[in-house]
């Protein structure tokens, strides 16, 4: 579904991504790990279409279509979802209005009429249950005054509502206690099917105990420098990133 080829991107004139190659197929779970500043969040922002970032080279295809040519909202309609590392607070916009606008925008994109109020509320109820999200949060402003855990649960709730084909979860585990982590991970697992795929971006093995990826990619200096199976994550947890950094830096120096 997703084919990223030699992707380069920069922000404020500084090149962050220096040739990313990545392929994701339906049913797969990928994890992207890597030290701070390696470009993990930039990759998620570029794939979701944040206009603050400029793509300077390469390509990204989503179901054969040019992902990079699409506006962020079109990427969403086409089935791409980004769970934010820092979910944005939007005072004055209620969660329920926000979700209604989102759902109906997608329906409009596919030429469908807006969802009826009853159906919408019923769906909200069902989806809320997946992440055990408190009903009270629905009437509050988007993410405003939410705890760290509530914000992350709210991201998974939105993912459940939008039913994306590909979800990119950017450090969904950061700032979560063990219980919240379990709830979030279980939510992701419940939503998993053979038709959709997930990319989790994380620092820690911890999340991967719950969400089991088939592929682990190590991002360093704007490139994927190593790809492996679940064992790679365990090795990282044990040995840290230094050996990979050294390996890459040595290759650079020798090359």
């Amino acid at each position: 579904m997703l084919k990223v080829n030699n992707l380069h991107a920069e922000i404020n004139g500084k090149e962050i991504l220096k040739g990313i190659n990545l392929e994701v197929r339906p049913g797969e779970v990928h994890a992207i790990m890597g030290p701070n500043g390696s470009g993990k969040s930039t990759l998620s922002m570029v794939l979701a279409g944040n206009p603050a970032y400029t793509v300077t080279g390469g390509s990204a295809e989503f179901y054969g279509k040019d992902l990079l040519a699409m506006a962020p909202e079109v990427r969403s309609h086409e089935g791409l979802f980004l769970g934010f590392q820092y979910p944005v607070e939007i005072p004055g916009v209620s969660m329920v209005n926000f979700m209604r606008a989102a759902v109906n925008a997608k329906r409009e994109y596919f030429g469908e009429p807006p969802m009826s109020a009853t159906d919408f509320l019923k769906m909200m109820r069902e989806k809320r249950a997946i992440v055990e999200l408190d009903n009270k949060l629905a009437s509050r402003s988007v993410n405003e005054g939410f705890s760290g855990g509530e914000k992350k649960r709210n991201e998974i709730f939105q993912m459940a509502v939008l039913e994306p084909k590909l979800s990119i979860l950017d450090e969904t585990d950061s700032g979560l206690d063990i219980d919240a982590l379990r709830v979030v991970a279980e939510g992701v697992n419940k939503l998993k099917s053979e038709n959709n795929a997930t990319i989790v971006i994380t620092h820690y093995q911890r999340l991967l105990d719950y969400i089991k990826p088939e592929f682990i990619h190590i991002l360093y200096k704007g490139r994927i420098v190593m790809t492996g199976g679940p064992d790679l994550a365990l090795e990282l947890e044990e040995r840290g990133y230094d050996w990979i950094k050294q390996q890459v830096d040595n290759e650079e120096n020798n090359g």
């Binding site: 279409g49 206009p51 506006a71 909202e73 990427r75 939007i90 989102a102 997608k106 939105q158 939008l162």
Partner: peptide
């Protein structure tokens, strides 16, 4: 941007 990633124009 956050709102656009949820499908709002």
């Amino acid at each position: 941007f956050y709102m656009r990633t949820r499908g709002l124009s």
